[in-house]
Design a protein around this nucleic acid. Sequence first.
DNA 1: TTCAACTTACG
DNA 2: GTAAGTTGA
Length: 477
Amino acid sequence: MTTPRVLFWHRRDLRLTDNLGLAAAAAISPAVTGVYVLDPQVISPSEHLLPMAPARLWFLIESLIELQQRWRDAGSRLLVVEGDPVQLLPQLAERIAAEAVVWNRDVEPYARERDRQVAQRLQADGRKVVVDWDQLLIAPELLKTGGGDPYRVYGPFLRNWRGQVQAKQPVTVPAPAGLVDLDPAAVPSGEPLMARRDSHGFKGTELCPCRPGEAAAMQQLTSFCDGALFGYEPDRNFPGVVGTSYLSAALSVGTLSPRQAWSAAQEAREQARSEEQLHAIAVWEQELCWREFYQQALFHFPELSDGPYREQWRRFPWENNEDWFDFWREGQTGMPIIDAAMRQLNQTGWMHNRCRMIVASYLVKDLICDWRWGERAFMELEVDGDLAANNGGWQWSASSGMDPKPLRIFNPATQASKFDAAGDYIRQWVPELRHVNTKDLLSGEIGALERRDYPEPLVNHKTQQAKFKALYATIRS
DNA sequence: TTCAACTTACG
DNA sequence: GTAAGTTGA
C-alpha cells in the first residue's frame, strides 16, 4: 500500500515556516505536493477585480521562485500552473491522485467564491478538503460585540482582539521537512514562472524597500525588531526617517505570518529598556490589529469592496477632473509633499503610510475626486496592494467608511510641516526643488523664479476645502 | 437607555 | 475648543 498523497494549495501564504495549513497537510501524510495557480483574473488587469501592480507581480514571482527551492529542500516540490483554479485544481488533484486538498482561508470576496467552487468540485470527486485560518491571529468569526454582531469600530475591536491574542499567546510552527516527492511520471509539464520573471514590467526592483521571499521577510523582521521597533512611536510618523517595518508586502502575500510578527514583538518586549520602548512596541502591535480589523471588516461586509459603506456617499457629486487626477497620479500637482509621495510610490512601489493618508485626503478633499479612483491607482502601483487594507484606508480617508468620525480634511502644508519639518523627504523625491527654502517647500507657495519648471499648485486648499464642505452638506441626511 | 468614546487635525 | 453622529457596553 502506498502513502496517501496530499495537495497543498498556496495562495497568500508563500512560506513553509509557520504555515498552519501546510502543517495540517503534512500531518495527514508526508507525501505533500505544493501548487500555486497564476490566475489571470488576479495577475492581469480584469474588468471586475482591481488590478495587480507590476511591483506586486514582481514580488509575487520572486517569492514563488524562492518558495520552489524551499520545497525542494524539504524533499518535495511546488508546482506552478497558470489558468483558472476552479478548472485546474480538480484536474491536478486527479492527476496526482490526491486524497486530500488543503489550503488556508482568505477574506476577499473573489477568493471566497472561487474557493467555494473549488471545494465543491473536489468533494464531488470524493476528495477530502481541509481549510482553516492562517493569515489572521484571531479568526474573524471569533470577534463579535456583546450583541453578537461584527465590529464596525476599531476601538472596541482592538480591546477584544488584544484580549484574545494575549489569552492565546500565539506560537509559530516549524517548516515541514522530510517530505515525499511525486513519482516523476506523475509530474505535469510546463513551468510558467521563469517566463514571467522578465515580463512583470516593474522598474524599481532595487529601490523597493520590501524584499520578496520568505528568507528576506524574516531578515527584515529580525532587523526591525532589533532596532527601529523600539522607536516606532514616534518615528513611524516621519516619512524621511527609516522608522517602519516595510513588512506590508510580506504580510500581504504571506512570506511572513502575523504570528511570526507578533512573536518577534513579544521577544522585543523582553529587551525593552523603558516605558517609551514598551509603548512603541504596543503601537506596532496595534498596527497589526488594524490589518486584522480591515480583513474582518471585508469578511463580514463584502459590500465594502463595491463602494462607500455609508449610503449617502454614493450620491456625492464628485468633480472627477481627469487632468487633475493624472497630475496627482504622476506627482505633478504643484504641492511638494503630495508630489514627493506619489513619485516615491511610482518609483519604488511603496509609499510611507503617513503620506498615503496625506495624498488620499488631497485627492478626495482638495481635488474632489472619487476615492475609488485613488483606490484603483494605489492597487496599480503598490507592491503591497491589498484589497482589505487599501479599501479600508481609502474609506477612512474619504470619511465614507465605518468609523464614526468628523469629516477628516488634512491640510497638506500643515502635515508637511509636522512630519517633514526639514523638508528632507520632499527634497529626496522632488529633486528639482532642492534649492528652494524649507518654508516655501512645505507650504508649496514657491515664487515663479524659484519654481522654474515645477508646476504651479493645481488648487488652493482653503477654497477647495470650503467647496468640499458645501458639497458634503448636500448629501448629509 | 444613556453615554462615553472616537488613529485626530485644524484653527 | 470644535467637528459629527454612530457605535458599543
